[in-house]
Amino acid sequence: MKPSIAVIGAGLAGLTLARELAGQAEVTLFEKARGLGGRMSTRRQDDRQWDHGAQFFTARSRAFRQLLAPHIAAGTVAEWHPNLTTLSPEKPPFKRPWFEPHYVAVPGMNALLKAMAAGQEVRLQTRVAHLRRRPDGWQLFDEQDGDLGTFDRVVSSAPLPQTRELLGPHLAEPDALAPYAMAPCYALLLAVDAAALPAWDAARVNHAPLRWIAFNHRLPGRGPAGSVVAHSTPEWAREHLEHDQDWVQQQLTESFLALTGLPVRAIAGARLHRWRYALSNEPAEPGEGYVLDPQTGLAACGDWCLGGRVEAAFLSGRALARALSRRP
């Protein structure tokens, strides 16, 4: 009889784990959001869209390139060749080259996850609030204490703070999650007059509250309506995380206007997204790319295990799947 595994979080790490364990286990993914994505989410309004988390990804490992190959062939993933610049309040812009391929999912960053979820059992809008150990496994409960089922193993691929909250009290090694950390980030989403934008497509930013600006509508497969995603630095976000959100939006908008030289009238609308757990630090000690507690059957994976890139989420989920395959 195949073991049953509950995976909390249907992002890239969780979906990779389920994909790798196909045929070996009965995997059920629980996702609190109404759609797939996590930090690969896409927001839409009228004829505009914003990839307000990850804007692109690289493929440095052979395994990740193999995963992407059929999606590239199908048009779900495309290589991105932006006109990239560097901005700073004190210096003129200068062109910034990229020396390796960069990719995006089409028509939004969550398209890759939607493709990977095909054939998987995913329960959307289902938040796992707590779990309880039973003689026959782990029983999961939602926020109303509703029974979500009992499973042989539970894996959290959620961001680190949620993983700590869910699994921490039950781990045989209380310090198993101690080496890992995450940082916040703000995403400013602007509807703009596309004709008013400069010629470059994306920018790295130095010495400002913002650290990244991209003209989202210029990514492959997007529509023509002007849309901008601007990310803050983690340091600025941490300092202003609990400040009035209207004030935060105003400060980031002013930084964007100062860096780009756009007039205020070029902005047709603005929204703000606060990522409390956006960026992952390199672990204090190098590990295997996942957390596995053999005594309890609990485990965790995610980009935060390997330093935060999109590819790190894939590699973490894949490494944990292989570790679970070796265990009874």
Rank of each mutant, 00 (worst) to 15 (best):
M1D: 11
P3A: 10
S4W: 01
I5A: 08
I5V: 15
A10Y: 12
A13N: 06
L17S: 10
A18N: 02
L21F: 07
A22C: 09
Q24M: 03
Q24C: 04
E26L: 13
E31M: 10
E31L: 06
K32W: 01
G35M: 03
G37H: 04
G38L: 05
G38S: 06
M40E: 06
R43Q: 12
R43C: 07
D46M: 02
D51A: 00
F56C: 10
T58N: 07
S61L: 02
S61N: 02
S61V: 03
L67K: 06
L68N: 04
I72T: 04
I72S: 02
H81T: 09
P82E: 05
P82M: 02
L84F: 13
T86E: 11
P89I: 12
E90C: 07
E90S: 14
K91A: 13
K91Y: 11
F94T: 04
W98G: 04
H102V: 14
H102C: 06
V104R: 01
A105G: 13
V106E: 07
L112E: 08
L113V: 05
A118P: 00
E121V: 14
R123V: 04
L124Q: 06
Q125F: 02
L131R: 10
R133V: 04
R133L: 14
G137S: 07
W138H: 06
W138I: 04
Q139A: 14
Q139M: 13
L140D: 12
F141R: 13
F141Q: 08
F141W: 15
E143W: 00
D152N: 15
R153V: 01
V154Q: 11
P161L: 04
T163A: 15
L166I: 12
L166Q: 09
P169C: 10
H170I: 02
A172I: 04
E173H: 13
E173T: 15
P174S: 10
A176I: 09
L177F: 14
Y180K: 04
A181Y: 01
M182Q: 15
D193G: 02
D193L: 03
A196F: 05
P198L: 06
R204T: 11
V205A: 07
H207S: 10
P209Q: 05
P209G: 06
R211N: 14
R211F: 06
R211M: 12
W212Q: 04
W212M: 02
A214R: 00
A214Y: 01
N216A: 00
H217T: 00
R218F: 09
L219A: 12
L219K: 15
G221I: 02
P224E: 15
P224F: 03
P224G: 10
G226L: 02
A230R: 01
W236V: 00
H240P: 08
H243D: 15
D244G: 06
Q245C: 00
Q251S: 13
Q251T: 11
L257S: 08
G261T: 03
P263F: 00
V264H: 14
V264A: 15
R265Y: 01
A268M: 00
A268T: 13
A278I: 03
S280D: 10
P286N: 03
P286Q: 11
P286G: 08
P286W: 07
Q295H: 09
L298N: 12
L298Y: 09
C301M: 08
D303M: 10
W304D: 01
C305A: 13
C305N: 14
C305G: 02
G308E: 05
G308D: 03
E311M: 03
A312W: 09
A312Y: 05
R318Y: 12
